[in-house]
């Protein structure tokens, strides 16, 4: 793992490990609940990419915003939305972060700085530019981090949104999570360049590559991009090389990628890597790490209990919240 350019506080390291583990265990739990038929809908699981969400959000303040995608659970955990509210949303309960109106693909809570996830590929990119425009015009030093996948970088919205953020020097950090596949299609079949970061040069902004399987690499790149954004110097595109360990969605048979490839990336799993690094560098003992695991399990169990025991919406609640002020 890379040496950090900035000294990272012990509290932050602990939170990083906790959040990455929570994001992973949340997905494993969600997957199980889906298989058992306890949750409605579909689900796009984030397992494998935790270092990206946590590395980026660790470099943000609570009042900074993020935009997210159809694969938002990890982002929501990393931005600090209570796990109970996330789990309750998966269960379509009124106590969910979107009160049962959003579900898996629209997780978010603006009170924690997360715009409800936009599940249209690339759709969040111009929106993030607009948030950046507001933060700049209102003379705040807030920034917005915009998560999107490799597939989104081929959308027209990517071009329009990144270009506008660039020409107006907006405080946006464009975070591309390159997990190599748009559903089943390999990135090499839809892109002529090797790195998405290279696309930044077309907009006259920095394009940086981070190791998306190393939370400290992502954190480091983000800290630099955030400093640039807060100081008024404009956006940065960070490409995080990462991998999703599970299928695109819950019904993906995954016959488009080899066992060897999957094993290779699993050997880079960011969570055991961070654990080893934390112990090796004497930030934490193995026992202290074990206690984080226990804490995560306990919270997750409580979240599932809370979600199961929460009330469902009434059918006619569907009529509310179409417009502002019609809500509960």
């Amino acid at each position: 793992m890379k040496l950090l350019k900035k000294k990272v506080e012990k509290d932050l390291l602990r939170r990083m490990y906790y959040q990455m583990l929570m994001a992973r265990r949340f997905e494993e739990q969600a997957s199980l609940l889906f298989v058992n038929g306890e949750l409605p809908g579909t689900v796009h699981l984030y397992a494998g990419q935790e270092a990206v969400a946590v590395g980026v959000c660790s470099a943000l303040r609570k009042d900074d915003y993020i935009t997210s995608t159809h694969r938002p659970h990890g982002h929501a955990v990393a931005k600090g939305i209570p796990v109970k509210a996330l789990m309750a949303e998966l269960f379509a309960k009124t106590t969910g972060c979107c009160r049962g109106y959003g579900g898996s693909m629209h997780m978010g809570d603006i009170d924690y700085g997360m715009v409800p996830a936009i599940a249209i590929v690339g759709g969040g990119i111009p929106v993030a530019a607009g948030i950046g425009l507001a933060f700049k015009r209102l003379k705040t030093d807030r920034v917005v981090a915009c998560f999107f996948g490799d597939g989104a970088s081929s959308e027209g919205a990517f071009h329009e949104g990144v270009n506008m953020a660039a020409i107006w020097d907006l405080p946006v950090i464009f975070v591309c999570e390159n997990n190599l596949y748009g559903a089943s299609t390999h990135v090499s079949r839809v892109m002529k360049v090797d790195n998405i970061a290279e696309r930044a040069s077309a907009y006259g902004i920095p394009g940086v590559i981070a190791d998306g399987m190393d939370v400290l690499s992502v954190y480091d790149a983000t800290v630099e991009a955030v400093e640039r954004a807060r100081s008024g110097s404009g956006p940065t595109l960070i490409e995080c090389k990462t991998y999703r360990f599970l299928g695109h969605s819950r019904t993906d048979p995954q016959q488009y990628r080899s066992k060897e490839e999957m094993e290779f990336w699993k050997s880079k799993d960011a969570i055991p890597r961070l654990k080893a690094w934390l112990i090796e560098n004497e930030h934490f003992t193995a026992e202290e790490i074990d206690r984080i695991h226990e804490e995560v399990e306990r919270e997750l169990d409580e979240a599932v209990e809370f979600a199961k025991n929460s009330p469902s919406p009434l059918p006619e609640d569907a009529l509310k919240n179409v417009f502002v002020g019609e809500g509960s």
Partner: peptide, 26 residues
């Protein structure tokens, strides 16, 4: 020109930036 803001010819961008600007407090 900051408040009568000319854009590139990019309609998706205009609408998306307007949505985002509204979320951000404008």
């Amino acid at each position: 020109l900051d408040r009568i803001l000319d854009t590139p010819i990019a309609e998706t961008g205009i609408a998306g930036v307007a949505v985002g600007a509204a979320i951000g407090g404008l």
